[in-house]
Design a protein around this nucleic acid. Structure first.
Length: 281
DNA sequence: ATGGCTAAAAGATTTAGA
């Protein structure tokens, strides 16, 4: 299985280059974030013509997540256990959920497309929401892997956290003043490892940004940040055979501000029979 | 001192992104 994650920043604006990428790169499963539309507005046609099923979750013009898959998806969920909501005026357990998670079972693999809340600012209530959200994700993941330690599980998406100083090439993002780099956000991200998932791209690609702000020539200056990740359980981590960050997708007409991240998984699933001997004649 | 781009709504501005 070739698995990709990409914050597309509006699928309606970028459906052509999104599908072109998936086909050109032979992607089996593409997790998308910031589709910025409701399911009934999603441009299913080009995906289906290219051989993909699509499951989408969106409530309005904000956020929104989806998964495109060549193989059928079952057990689709639009939130994980304990996922907190947020709305002006009321936080807490009664707050409405945002469209930031969609999960599906694909060829035995549980895939989650995740869009972690932006903290906005160190003194903004959204930062506490972001930390709660990550903590709930850790607890839900730990529970799922405690129930089945061998479960092939992938948490992929835009985590909105810059884990290490070397992941930050943007001089406007400063530890002590900015979100994404605070010790609290980094701790919440690293805590996901305690649940049993690990970043399988970093060991293969220690350097590389996944996002460059549209403003102030950030891309030409290469002042990017690394915030998009593929975290997987041990069963899948043992199956990784390659990884790539597709920096060129930040170029050209109307790019997303994020680029795709891809891993190759060889876990003996049923999707890839190219190497099987011909038993019929 | 600065949100300097980009996108979506029911706007000719606001809200959001990180």
């Amino acid at each position: 299985m070739r698995l990709a994650t990409w914050n597309v920043n509006s699928i309606r604006t970028r459906v052509a280059r999104t599908v072109e990428f998936a086909v050109r790169e032979d992607i089996d499963v593409l997790a998308m974030q910031e589709i910025k539309c409701k399911p009934e507005q999603f441009p299913y046609g080009p995906f289906e013509e290219a051989g993909y099923h699509v499951e989408a979750h969106g409530l309005n013009q904000w956020n929104g997540v989806a998964i495109a898959s060549r193989l059928p998806m079952t057990d689709v969920q639009t939130s994980f256990a304990g996922m907190p909501g947020f709305a002006k005026g009321h936080e807490g357990p009664d707050a409405p959920l945002e469209a930031r998670a969609i999960g599906a079972l694909i060829d035995g693999v549980r895939v989650w497309s995740l869009y972690v809340p932006n903290g906005r600012a160190l003194d903004d209530p959204h930062l506490a929401y972001k930390l709660h959200w990550l903590d709930a994700l850790k607890k839900a993941t730990a529970a799922e892997l405690e129930a089945d330690p061998e479960l092939p599980l992938a948490l992929v998406g835009d985590f909105n956290v810059i884990p290490f100083d070397d992941d930050n090439g943007d001089p406007d993002i400063v530890v002590g003043r900015s979100t994404h780099v605070s010790p609290e956000e980094r701790a919440a991200f690293f805590a996901l490892a305690e649940a049993g998932v690990s970043d399988v791209v970093r060991p293969l690609l220690p350097a590389g940004y996944t996002y460059w702000d549209y403003q102030r020539l950030k891309f030409p200056r290469n002042e990017g940040i690394r915030i998009d990740f593929i975290l997987v359980s041990k069963t899948l981590a043992d199956a990784v055979t390659g990884a790539s960050i597709h920096r060129d997708e930040r170029k050209g007409e109307q790019p997303s501000d994020h680029v795709p991240v891809v891993v190759d998984l060889d876990f003996g699933g049923g999707e890839d029979d190219d190497d099987l001997p011909m038993i019929f004649s």
